[in-house]
Amino acid sequence: MKIVADHGTCEGLGMCEAMADQFFEVGEDGVVRVLDETPPEAEREFVDAAVRACPVAALRLQD
Rank of each mutant, 00 (worst) to 15 (best):
A18T: 09
C16L: 13
M19V: 15
F46C: 05
C10I: 03
A5T: 13
V34H: 07
E43C: 09
R52K: 12
E28S: 06
D63M: 13
L61A: 10
V31H: 02
F24Y: 02
A20K: 00
T9Q: 08
V56Q: 15
F23I: 15
C54P: 05
G30H: 03
V56Y: 15
A18Y: 14
D29V: 00
G30R: 00
R60W: 04
G14A: 14
A18R: 08
E25I: 12
I3W: 09
A50E: 11
E28I: 11
G12A: 10
P39K: 01
D48V: 15
A50G: 07
V31I: 14
C16G: 06
V26P: 02
G12F: 00
G12N: 00
A18C: 14
V51M: 07
E28F: 07
A53S: 15
E41L: 05
D63W: 12
G27K: 02
D6G: 05
G12I: 00
R33D: 11
A49W: 09
D6N: 06
H7M: 10
D6W: 10
P40A: 11
G14P: 05
G12H: 00
E45I: 09
A20Y: 06
T9I: 14
V26M: 02
D29C: 00
E43F: 10
V56N: 15
G12P: 01
E28Q: 11
G8Q: 12
Q22R: 15
E28H: 08
A20P: 01
E41C: 05
Q22Y: 15
E45H: 08
G8Y: 10
Q22A: 13
E17F: 10
G27M: 01
E37Q: 08
C54F: 02
A57V: 14
H7Y: 06
Q22L: 15
L61W: 09
E28A: 09
A5E: 04
A53G: 11
R44I: 01
G8D: 13
M15C: 14
E25P: 12
E37D: 08
A53Q: 12
F23D: 14
R52D: 10
E28G: 03
T38Y: 09
E17N: 01
P55V: 04
P39I: 04
D6F: 13
G8K: 11
A18K: 10
V34F: 11
A50H: 03
D63S: 12
A53K: 14
E41R: 15
L13H: 00
A42E: 15
P40W: 06
A42Y: 10
G27S: 05
E28R: 05
T38C: 03
F23K: 00
L13M: 11
H7R: 09
